[in-house]
Nucleic acid binder design. Sequence first.
DNA 1: GTCTATATGTTGATAGAC
DNA 2: GTCTATCAACATATAGAC
Lengths: 215, 215
Amino acid sequence: MTGKKTKLSKSNSEQRIRARNEAKILKSAVELFSRKGFDGTRIAEIAEASGLPKANVYYYFANKAAIYTRLIEGVLTGWDRALEHITPDREPREALSLYIAAKLDYSRKHASESRFFANEMLRGGKFLSRQQKRHMKEITREYARVIEGWMEEGKIVRVDPNHFLIMLWATTQFYADFSTVAAATVEKKHLTASDFETARSTIVDIILNNCVPPR
Amino acid sequence: MTGKKTKLSKSNSEQRIRARNEAKILKSAVELFSRKGFDGTRIAEIAEASGLPKANVYYYFANKAAIYTRLIEGVLTGWDRALEHITPDREPREALSLYIAAKLDYSRKHASESRFFANEMLRGGKFLSRQQKRHMKEITREYARVIEGWMEEGKIVRVDPNHFLIMLWATTQFYADFSTVAAATVEKKHLTASDFETARSTIVDIILNNCVPPR
DNA sequence: GTCTATATGTTGATAGAC
DNA sequence: GTCTATCAACATATAGAC
């Protein structure tokens, strides 16, 4: 109301600097939180990994929790996008293949986000807002209904739709969260793109060849 | 060499007290570590949860890492026991059903041990000794070979045996590590024995009915 | 074996010069 | 917007009386 215009609207360069530094902080933070959790991660570590002094981290974020909750929001968005492949009008074989591929792709390309969320789930989801919890439940319900619909139409065999969804999530998630174990299992130091491809075809084989009757 | 006998061999009551207090500490520690990880867990919290003063925790364990590594050893033992159901002489349907049931049972009854190990894997397994890593690899190899054997005999369909093993582990593990998500998915506050039973039959249905040809 | 007190170092967060 | 200096709170771990 009384502030001057130059005070209210930030300059372009200021905004760019803010955007760049926030991104640096968030990128370092998700990696650290994903490995050591909220309490285990030190602001000083985040600062060092971002190449910024610790005080600058506090310039951009009010406190540790503010960084953490911003990251949760980002992961939930990515989570939703993979699920968008499951639509009732698609044939189950196509929809589920696409979903499995997309989810594995997310596990490969956003491994630290995935681990970060896993860490938050191990904690019991204490940092999720009520709204975010509700959103996750609604999304789950929505897709469980699509799967149930396919079962009613006889397009896939009848099993418990909730546990069916859990299987999809568990198998694809594993390759991000426990990539150490997965890599050791295939006798490599790190999982490669071709390991992910083998994972994809194995999951599709086992889940789809059983559940979806041949055309 | 110079110590008196009474100094070398502890009395029965001393041993019992030690055993009881160590057990209390380990039980509290596994729950806390499983939720907050190594760096996130405070010795004071462990002490409080055990009902002992902090200094007593240090009387029984040299430091935080000593508690942590003792717990890892315990989890690996439990892990092995579930796998023992997979033997080459058994029919795949029987062996795999037993394994899935045993692993889910472990997830239900030892959820915090399971989460604890998941946390350690998220960290990348930094606390595992070289010996423990080798043991895990050998065990994995051994069971992958059993599965490969069944495939060669035509007893189960041919898929990648490593990724097949991963699927078994991922689906059963999920119900312990992400029980929050699983409970929300089935629209309950906590998973019950009957939820675990539905999980078991769904996993068995999807994995076995596809992979194991009907008798 | 139990427990209070404490040494020694870290941590989250802020003040305030530039 | 950047950064040094600093603080109060809290951490691990130990000393030593009981």
